[in-house]
């Protein structure tokens, strides 16, 4: 099910501004890959190119290839909408749809696409998705209440359930815990560890401990200076990155000497 991602010579632009340059990396299937690096180095930007959300911003475009199981996502015959169904995304700030109930939020990927689904199938999908997001027991008695009435941590897990309900193969998470308290953060980290048996997961985080805790591999991004494009410094097994990185910059960043 889960897929391998190969990125080659990727340059990412906002209009004329080159935000990220020359990224090449391989992301293993059924594993968690963490992106770390100082603010503005292009982690979010790069992450969004993995499901073609980058081009939603006017003027934004990329050069290079992102291949999922050997198929280039930027190939001429690829439909970005279909890509996004295979590569789901969870955002930094929880963003449930305010006009929808908890249940409708989970079903959003189905309902918004005008797909028909039987009542019992819908109920099953809601339960399975909420269970895999560790939210079921907390909300099973109020599925018809507005999703925005939940706490921040619950909302974020609701967003994860919503992303899972589309049955993607890859899950991208951009600082999913940055707006959450330590307990919700732990809940989501546990969730990530469970989900990696079925999904390929990529997570951006500013929290070194979190990267060390949840990820199998870690990629460190850096930027040479303001106005310069961000670059991938190195990617390796998380243990190696945190104990004996190859690059001095990585060690400096991890040990808190800058960033």
């Amino acid at each position: 099910m889960a897929q391998r991602i190969d990125v080659k010579d990727l340059n990412i632009y906002y209009g004329d501004f080159k935000a990220v340059a020359d990224v090449g990396m391989a992301i293993e299937p059924r594993s968690v890959t963490a992106f770390i690096g100082p603010s503005g180095c292009g982690k979010s930007t790069f992450l969004r190119t993995l499901n073609r959300m980058h081009e939603v911003i006017p003027g934004a475009h990329v050069e290079g290839t992102v291949a999922v199981d050997g198929v280039d996502l930027y190939g001429a015959d690829v439909d970005p909408v279909a890509v996004r169904r295979q590569v789901g995304m969870v955002f930094q700030r929880p963003n449930p749809f305010p006009t929808m109930s908890i249940e409708e939020n989970v079903l959003a990927g189905v309902r918004l696409n005008n797909k028909r689904i039987s009542k019992s199938d819908a109920a099953d999908l809601v339960e399975v998705s909420l269970r895999s997001a560790n939210l079921w027991t907390e909300v099973k008695d109020r599925l018809n209440r507005p999703g925005s009435g939940l706490s921040g941590g619950q909302q974020q897990r609701l967003c994860i359930a919503r992303a899972i309900a589309v049955k993607p193969q890859v899950l991208l998470m951009d600082e999913p815990c940055s707006a959450l308290d330590p307990i919700s953060t732990l809940a989501i980290e546990d969730l990530i560890s469970e989900l990696k048996s079925a999904y390929t997961i990529v997570i951006v985080t500013h929290n070194m401990q979190q990267a060390a805790r949840v990820s199998d591999r870690t990629a460190f991004f850096n930027l040479a200076g303001v106005g310069q494009p961000g670059r991938l410094v190195e990617i390796d097994d998380t243990g190696t990155i945190f104990s004996s990185p190859r690059e001095q910059a990585t060690e400096d960043y991890i040990s808190g000497r800058f960033g």
């Binding site: 499901n51 959300m53 939603v56 909408v81 279909a82 890509v83 996004r84 169904r85 295979q86 789901g88 995304m89 955002f91 700030r93 963003n95 749809f97 305010p98 006009t99 959003a108 990927g109 309902r111 918004l112 696409n113 005008n114 967003c159 919503r162 992303a163 589309v166």
Partner: peptide, 27 residues
Amino acid sequence: VPNELREAALALGVPKWLVVIKVVLRT
């Protein structure tokens, strides 16, 4: 209408015109 809602719907693999009708207009 917050841009986050548009992005949330787009990231679920919803085509833009449906995002406009079912999320933006509805909100």
